[in-house]
Design a protein around this nucleic acid. Structure first.
Lengths: 333, 333
DNA sequence: GTGAAAGCGCTAACAG
DNA sequence: CTGTTAGCGCTTTCAC
């Protein structure tokens, strides 16, 4: 059926060791033998059995990527980049979807044994500090995005406070005075940080901070953004700008504004967060915080590589990747 | 370090076989032994080494999913569903991104050895018939979407001709008379079928079919849709409706129309294809063909399962999954 | 330089 | 019902 190392060895008239040496690029093989092995290799169409190789080598060849859902554009884009980055380190990526529920996140985390994966990149949404308790002893773990609780894990993210402050600073700079926020959520670490950035930008501009302008969002889907925006626009005194904690919320907000006859940006400006591809084509296109997703993916994979290599263990890393503010029509003049 | 079956056996004072039996849910184990094994299992925190198990069982535990890019919403959504469907069959999904280039698709196809994966679901974009030549002898392969060339592979897709005819029929039914198409591409199998459906709907309505109304698209991204639409709108006599071969093209078309002051649907109606989540929230929201993606994912995984099970080989399957027309604002009154 | 042989962790005959 | 044992395909000492 499929050629094994042994088949190749028999055909070439050498031992498996020699074949293995050739396959793995070991330098010292007698030219004559090398030639015969290579011939047998192509003749049989040999392909190494990665599973067996990894079993022997004590590595799995996989890293896990835990995300809420691949259908969420940000995570679809990120997953694509992680796969690309992992490929360069000879890793395949196993994607675990949790729907953002704590229970499934916890179960996924628990299933990340060393014989399953060599490491994992996790993007938790609902996990609490205690859920990480037993896990830290296992494989290298890198956390993406902030988390409210302090967890002793490597961590890659943009400076969420600064990013939010930049976004809202852009709005105050435009002369907007009644700036709302959509996405408040006590269970999301990033929400707290983005809210903090929002508040500090308002304070910096000497603007009041009425509670009614901070709209919660249970989830971060388009629908939630539309609902929150509908609420804000029905206020006696509606906002003249909105900072949404992600692009999906902003897309929903855009629609709610249009449905109620508010013009964007004339009546109300909108800023998003994530710079998903969709945001460049919405009507109007979305001003948004653009995290360097490629850097996030590469940094995360690299951290796992460094942790899984032998050598001095190093202290917990907290890497901040760059971001920029992408100014588009939704806050344009 | 990590507990193995042997460790558990030693601790429980039984043989590995007994432990294996318990782990694999074999019914006939003496209650007393079962109890002791279960105790040892939790005491050691044993987790099976899936790699070793699969090596022994002669399966890999993986199926591959070949897509152009995960950042394309349709494929992000589909991949999520495939992962979910595969999980039920105890399969993990390895995602291979090809960027839709023939070279990478070919290489991916060639790398799909039986020791890598138990099967593969491929969504080729540029592959030609000859590229499948050596591949068919390997693992079960399921192709998604149509392909121009006839390849002896299991195949899951909606009825593209009928779907396109339905979409365009909707436009003719609305009284549109100059209906354009965006997405013509000689290298894409689905393009030919959707074009055929488009033509037959026009013929059915007794409408002329000027060549100038069929706009090509090299890729199917938002940008391509915008460019094609810009071209159509600059025609001496612009169309009053456009059928786009996917949602991304339609989103781009929406923007091009808005930039040129065309109102959708008043001046020009637009229909998309795929029903990506984005299409329900664009402004205006997009009328689109909604394939049952869950059915596609499940059918594809199921086909691989049936092919990889022992038993009578069955003839090549060509499964048509259901679709519907989702009518929204972009063709609304 | 290369061969023989052990064994990664697991499952499945085969005995008993 | 359960223990012993032989590999799955590969890498890797250890001799020669």
């Amino acid at each position: 059926m499929v050629a094994t190392l042994k088949d190749v060895a028999t055909l070439a008239g050498v031992s498996v060791k020699t074949v293995s040496n050739v396959v793995n690029g070991y330098a010292f093989v007698k030219p004559e033998n090398r030639r015969r092995v290579e011939e047998a290799l192509t003749a049989t169409g040999y392909r190494p059995n990665v599973g067996a190789r990894n079993l022997r080598r004590g590595r799995t060849g996989f890293i896990a990527l835990m995300v809420p859902e691949l259908s969420i554009p940000y995570f679809g884009e990120l997953a694509g980049l992680v796969i690309t980055a992992a490929q360069k380190q000879d890793w395949s990526v196993l994607i675990e979807q949790t729907q953002g529920t704590r229970d499934r996140e916890r179960r996924t985390l628990a299933s990340l044994g060393p014989h399953m994966v060599d490491g994992a990149i996790v993007s938790p949404e609902a996990l609490e500090a205690e859920d990480f308790a037993g896990v830290t002893g296992g494989v290298p773990l890198v956390m993406l995005g902030e988390h409210a609780v302090d967890v002793p894990l490597d961590h890659v993210a943009i400076d969420n406070v600064l990013a939010a402050r930049t976004a809202v600073g852009h709005l105050t700079g435009l002369g907007r005075r009644r700036i709302a926020a959509i996405g408040q959520n006590p269970h999301r670490g990033t929400a707290a940080l983005r809210l903090e950035g929002y508040r500090s930008a308002l304070a910096e501009a000497g603007l009041p901070q009425p509670d009614e302008l901070v709209a919660p969002a249970l989830n971060y889907h388009r629908r939630d953004g539309a609902e929150a925006m509908a609420h804000l626009l029905s206020l006696p005194e509606p906002p003249d700008a909105v900072f949404c904690f992600n692009d999906l919320l902003a897309i929903g907000a855009l629609r709610a504004a249009a449905e109620r006859g508010f013009r964007v940006p004339a009546d109300i400006a909108i800023v998003g967060f994530d710079n998903t591809e969709e945001s460049a084509y919405s009507l109007p296109s979305l001003t948004t915080i653009a995290p360097d997703k490629t850097a996030i993916a590469q940094t995360a994979v690299d951290l796992i590589r460094r942790r899984s290599e032998p050598g001095e263990p190093f202290e917990r890393q907290d890497v901040q990747t760059p971001f920029s503010l992408e100014i588009r029509e939704s806050t344009g003049t």
